[in-house]
Amino acid sequence: MHLRFPARFLCLIPVFLSTPAFSAGPKIHTVALGAARRVSYTQPDATPEEKLDQTSTIKVRPLIIDGRQKEWTTGETHDITDRTFAIRRALRINDALPSDSAPRWIWQPGPWITVDRVTGHITALHLPNFDPLVSDAIWFRDYAAYCGTNTTTRGGNLYVVVAQLGARRPVVQKAIGRWPEPNHFIPVCQSAKWERLPLRVTIQPTGGQATTYDVVGTSSIIEEGDNDDSN
């Protein structure tokens, strides 16, 4: 038996079929750190004898987003919010001279990045006067405290720095000595020590005197983007 439909119903059929039953939801991103491994590490300003010593190591881990490795990292993560964390990059640098016949790859601790667990977005942090060979950033909330450096043709300084994410200027930036210094201590400064109430931080140059700084009169808004599937 053949069924006949009025023409007005037939013209509606393709329109009905072309309409999706539901719209696609937001893309879900996966963020993870892979297994750690130890690699040899040598300070770039080490003596030739020290560069021959391969006993110094650092621990590196891959940062994996959506199943693909995006960065090498070193050290521990710091949760800034429930969705954003900070971690330090690990860089693999070619240390070969122009006269060398093959690359000479070395590992170095690099700058800090933040990672958004929701969007998978990575943001490079430009911490003021941060020196990857000197600075050991110690985090509290969205503050990072460390010793930093700057150098000019007339010489430079060693600084105490407290930086806050989203702020245009450092909360604390105070010169505590000249830089570079021959035969300097390693590490140059001891790890910063934070106190919650009142909010303050203590930093001590290795072999020098500790100084405490109050962190007051500043506020910052951490911008965390909406979830999207552009990554």
Rank of each mutant, 00 (worst) to 15 (best):
I176P: 05
K70T: 07
I113D: 02
A192G: 05
S220I: 04
D100F: 00
D226F: 00
F185C: 09
T19L: 15
G208K: 14
Q69E: 08
S99V: 09
S40L: 00
R8F: 13
Q54T: 14
I176E: 04
I13E: 10
D79C: 03
K51G: 07
P48M: 09
A7S: 15
R168L: 12
V188Y: 02
A90V: 04
L125S: 01
A163L: 01
A86R: 10
R4D: 14
V216E: 14
V31G: 13
P109S: 03
L91W: 03
I113W: 04
H78C: 05
T73N: 10
V39D: 15
S99H: 11
R83D: 10
G225H: 14
G25Y: 01
I138E: 15
W112E: 05
D131K: 00
T74D: 00
A86Y: 10
N231L: 05
T114I: 04
T211H: 08
N129K: 13
K51T: 01
C147D: 10
E224I: 12
D142P: 04
H2Q: 15
D136M: 12
Q69I: 01
D53W: 13
P14G: 08
V172W: 05
E195D: 10
W72V: 05
T84Y: 06
S135V: 07
I222V: 13
T211I: 07
T47M: 04
R104C: 01
T57P: 02
F185H: 14
T77I: 09
S191Y: 08
T123A: 00
G75T: 09
R4H: 14
E71V: 02
E49T: 11
D142Y: 12
V161P: 07
I221H: 15
P170M: 04
W194Q: 03
D45R: 00
I106T: 10
A32L: 09
S230M: 13
F22H: 08
A192P: 06
L3Q: 15
A96I: 01
F185D: 14
T119W: 00
V162Y: 11
H78G: 06
P26M: 04
G148S: 07
V172M: 04
H78E: 06
D136S: 14
K51N: 11
E223D: 15
P182I: 02
P6H: 15
C147G: 13
S99P: 05
L165E: 09
R8P: 00
H121E: 12
P20G: 06
